[in-house]
C-alpha cells in the first residue's frame, strides 16, 4: 500500500509544461576523497512529453550516468529526478523497480534479449513481469511496425543483429512507457540496420508521441532527434533544438576541447 502512495505522489514543483522526465541539479559522485569521480556535476533538464531527445558528449562525460539516473537505475548523490508524476528522490529499490516496470522502456547497445525466449516472448517479457495483459491490437501493430511478423517465433540466436535490436525496440515500446531510454542503440549495428532502428524510434515519437531519451556517439543518429544535449565533464554544455548534423559536430568539437 505504502508504495502505491509513494508512486502516486505528484511531482513537486508543479511545473507548467507536462515534463515526461526532468532532473534538478543532479550530481553524482563515485568513490570518496582523492579517488572520487564526479560523473555528474549539477545537471538540470526537462524533457517534455513526446520529445525525442539525444544526449551526446565525449567518452566519460557522464551520458550513461545521466540516463541511468533518469531511468531510476542509479541513485544520485544530490539533486532530484522527476519521472512522469513521480519524484524518484528517496525511493527504495522496490519502488524504483516498480517505477521502471511501469514507466520505463529500455533499448540497450547489446540488445540484451533472453536467448531462451522467442522474439514475441521477448517483446512481451516486461508486460509479463508486470503481470499485465498486452493490448492485442497494439502488440500486433508494434510487431508489424518493427517488421518481425514472420520472425516472431524465432529465438534471438536465429536473428540478425539488426533484427535483434528491432525486437528490443518493440519490447520497449509495447508497454507504452512514459519514457523510452536507449543507450547507443546503434552502437553494435551496421549503418543500414542502425538507420532502421533510428527510423523506428523516430516513428514512435511522431506517431505515438513516445518520449525518448537516446544516448549516442553518432552525430548523424543524433540529427534525427528533436533536441540534442551535449554533455562534457558532467555538465550540459549545449542544448540544441533540431540541429543539423554539422551543427552537432561543431558543438561536439567545442565540448571536446
Amino acid at each position: 500500500m505504502s508504495t502505491d502512495i509513494l508512486l502516486d505522489r505528484p511531482a513537486a514543483g508543479g511545473a507548467l509544461a507536462p515534463a515526461a522526465v526532468a532532473a534538478v541539479d543532479l550530481a553524482r559522485r563515485y568513490g570518496e576523497g582523492e579517488a572520487a569521480v564526479h560523473a555528474l556535476r549539477g545537471v538540470t533538464l526537462d524533457v517534455p512529453a513526446g520529445q525525442f531527445c539525444a544526449v551526446m558528449g565525449p567518452s566519460g562525460s557522464g551520458k550513461s550516468t545521466l540516463m541511468h539516473h533518469l531511468a531510476g537505475l542509479d541513485v544520485p548523490t544530490s539533486g532530484r529526478v522527476l519521472l512522469g508524476e513521480h519524484d524518484l528522490t528517496g525511493m527504495d529499490d522496490k519502488s524504483l523497480t516498480r517505477l521502471r516496470r511501469d514507466h520505463v522502456g529500455f533499448v540497450f547497445q547489446a540488445f540484451n534479449l533472453l536467448p531462451t525466449l522467442s522474439a514475441e516472448e521477448n517483446i512481451l517479457l516486461p508486460m509479463e513481469i508486470a503481470g499485465r495483459r498486452p493490448d492485442a491490437a497494439w502488440l500486433e501493430a508494434v510487431i508489424d511496425r518493427v517488421g518481425l511478423g514472420d520472425r516472431r517465433s524465432h529465438r534471438p540466436t536465429e536473428l540478425s543483429a539488426g533484427q535483434q535490436q528491432r525486437v528490443a525496440v518493440a519490447r520497449a515500446l509495447v508497454s507504452r512507457p512514459t519514457v523510452l531510454f536507449a543507450d547507443e542503440p546503434t552502437g553494435n549495428l551496421d549503418s543500414a540496420s542502425g538507420a532502421a532502428v533510428l527510423g523506428l524510434l523516430r516513428e514512435a515519437a511522431d506517431a505515438d508521441g513516445q518520449t525518448i531519451v537516446m544516448v549516442t556517439h553518432d552525430a548523424h543518429a543524433a540529427s534525427i532527434a528533436d533536441r540534442v544535449l551535449i554533455l562534457a565533464d558532467g555538465r550540459i554544455v549545449a542544448d540544441l533544438d533540431r540541429p543539423a548534423e554539422d551543427a552537432i559536430i561543431t558543438a561536439l568539437h567545442e565540448a571536446g576541447r
Binding site: A71, K94, T97, R101, F106, N112, I129, R171
Partner: peptide, 14 residues
C-alpha cells in the same frame, strides 16, 4: 549476470 541485470532493469523485482 548480464541477463539478470536486464531483467532487473525492465522491472523484475529481487
Amino acid at each position: 549476470t548480464k541477463e539478470l541485470g536486464m531483467l532487473r532493469a525492465v522491472g523484475m523485482s529481487r
